[in-house]
Simulated scan of single mutants.
Amino acid sequence: MKYSILDLCPVPEGSTAADAMRNTADLAQHVEALGFHRYWMAEHHNMPGIASAATSVLLGHVAGKTSTIRVGAGGIMLPNHAPLTIAEQFGTLATLYGDRIDLGLGRAPGGDHAVWHALRRGRTGEDNFPAEVAELMGYLGDADPQAAVQAHPGQGTHVPLWILGSSLYGAQLAAHFGLPYAFASHFAPDALEDAAYIYRRDFKPSGTLAKPQFMLAINVIAAETDAQAHYLRTSVQQAFARLRSGTPGKLPAPVEDIDATIGLGLRQGVDQALRISAVGGPETVRRQLAELIAKYQPDEVILTGQIHDPAARKRSFSIAAEAMADVVLEDA
């Protein structure tokens, strides 16, 4: 089983977006050496704690700092963009960096209603996502001499497409197109089991994929001890609580008493949303990862972890890599 990284390029309190981008390049090199398969980044807007808004630009930076790990979007929110523009951007990345580029596609705005309006002004609210996916596939596939518009670069690069989602809609669409499917279980796990079932049941083999390929997203916060890991986890708990409260900010520093900081009720709601997680010392994380993989039977996992201290984040993924190597060996 392959295991990969989802990095939102977090901006910790006390640091800048420039610091976050340097940390992202450093982390990409670190996890490449650890044997991770992919390094994905996601499109978010109007969030001071996430520096990956211009996702394709930052992916080019990461690809230029690495040599073997796959680099891609997890994902691009396609309704924010003209499919031709995305084909040209990712066709350029594929032209520069070869067969290392992935393109995961989502249909949310990557922000609130104000973001939706700012990005999609002049466009109707009609859901054209399936047609836009098909249009993008055409731009990245073999050239059609009869086509009035072609993507240069892009045409013929065959950049692999993924459908991303947190509902049954994405599962159905990925199955219809015969594309791989990544579920956002790291923050919206409620439909996880049903989505995985529907995707596998309804999957139609395509020219690019003969059988379903399902990716499970897992939060991982690992440290030397369980207590240290739970302390580090309070950063993402605070960040998620602020997002739910409509006050997103930079990634907070960890706190000793999370309930005193955000309140018991809100903390319980946050933990429910973040329940697809492995949090603890090396043995605890190994066990929890093994349990999640055994339960959901993914073809691949993608790990993410919002940790305030960049050095602790690197250490967390080192522990996770060791744990995943053990889990894969046991499964074999």
Score class of each variant (00 low, 15 high):
residue 61 H to L: 14
residue 312 A to G: 00
residue 96 L to C: 08
residue 87 A to K: 12
residue 158 H to D: 02
residue 212 P to R: 08
residue 154 G to D: 02
residue 59 L to R: 02
residue 315 R to E: 05
residue 142 D to H: 09
residue 94 A to V: 07
residue 277 S to F: 04
residue 27 L to I: 03
residue 201 R to M: 12
residue 74 G to K: 02
residue 229 A to H: 05
residue 204 K to A: 11
residue 144 D to R: 15
residue 213 Q to E: 13
residue 295 K to V: 01
residue 248 P to S: 10
residue 297 Q to H: 13
residue 260 A to E: 12
residue 12 P to H: 04
residue 274 L to F: 08
residue 104 G to S: 06
residue 279 V to G: 02
residue 102 D to F: 11
residue 131 A to R: 11
residue 210 A to H: 09
residue 57 V to A: 15
residue 191 A to C: 02
residue 131 A to Y: 01
residue 242 R to Y: 04
residue 41 M to R: 02
residue 64 G to A: 10
residue 127 D to S: 04
residue 94 A to I: 09
residue 158 H to A: 05
residue 301 V to A: 09
residue 57 V to S: 14
residue 164 L to Y: 02
residue 9 C to F: 05
residue 124 T to L: 08
residue 220 V to W: 00
residue 209 L to V: 12
residue 118 A to D: 13
residue 258 I to W: 00
residue 113 H to K: 11
residue 169 Y to V: 10
residue 18 A to E: 13
residue 21 M to W: 07
residue 176 H to I: 00
residue 281 G to M: 12
residue 95 T to L: 08
residue 146 Q to C: 00
residue 272 Q to D: 14
residue 24 T to P: 01
residue 216 L to G: 06
residue 155 Q to E: 06
residue 139 Y to A: 03
residue 300 E to T: 05
residue 52 S to H: 08
residue 215 M to N: 09
residue 329 L to N: 00
residue 56 S to F: 10
residue 321 A to H: 08
residue 200 R to L: 11
residue 321 A to F: 11
residue 123 R to S: 10
residue 131 A to V: 01
residue 11 V to K: 08
residue 220 V to A: 01
residue 158 H to T: 03
residue 134 A to F: 05
residue 152 H to N: 12
residue 138 G to D: 14
residue 303 L to Y: 08
residue 64 G to R: 04
residue 172 Q to S: 08
residue 278 A to V: 08
residue 89 Q to F: 06
residue 183 F to A: 05
residue 56 S to L: 09
residue 313 R to K: 11
residue 3 Y to C: 10
residue 43 E to Q: 04
residue 122 G to T: 07
residue 283 E to Y: 11
residue 210 A to Q: 15
residue 54 A to R: 06
residue 308 H to F: 05
residue 188 A to V: 10
residue 151 A to V: 09
residue 165 G to T: 08
residue 303 L to K: 07
residue 178 G to W: 04
residue 173 L to M: 07
residue 244 R to A: 14
residue 5 I to K: 05
residue 169 Y to P: 03
residue 40 W to T: 06
residue 39 Y to V: 07
residue 298 P to M: 10
residue 236 V to Q: 14
residue 249 G to K: 02
residue 144 D to M: 06
residue 187 F to R: 11
residue 299 D to H: 13
residue 223 A to I: 09
residue 179 L to P: 09
residue 2 K to Y: 10
residue 192 L to M: 07
residue 18 A to P: 00
residue 317 F to D: 02
residue 303 L to F: 04
residue 210 A to C: 02
residue 277 S to G: 13
residue 68 T to K: 14
residue 148 A to F: 12
residue 204 K to I: 13
residue 227 A to E: 15
residue 329 L to Q: 04
residue 282 P to I: 05
residue 110 G to I: 07
residue 203 F to T: 04
residue 209 L to N: 10
residue 259 D to M: 01
residue 288 Q to D: 15
residue 125 G to M: 12
residue 176 H to K: 12
residue 284 T to I: 12
residue 76 I to Y: 00
residue 124 T to R: 13
residue 103 L to C: 14
residue 149 V to T: 15
residue 215 M to L: 14
residue 5 I to A: 03
residue 311 A to E: 12
residue 311 A to F: 01
residue 4 S to F: 02
residue 10 P to A: 11
residue 225 T to Y: 07
residue 103 L to N: 08
residue 268 Q to G: 01
residue 127 D to T: 02
residue 9 C to Y: 00
residue 179 L to G: 11
residue 186 H to Q: 09
residue 77 M to K: 04
residue 24 T to G: 02
residue 2 K to S: 12
residue 331 D to C: 00
residue 100 R to M: 05
residue 77 M to Y: 03
residue 226 D to Y: 10
residue 303 L to N: 07
residue 251 L to F: 06
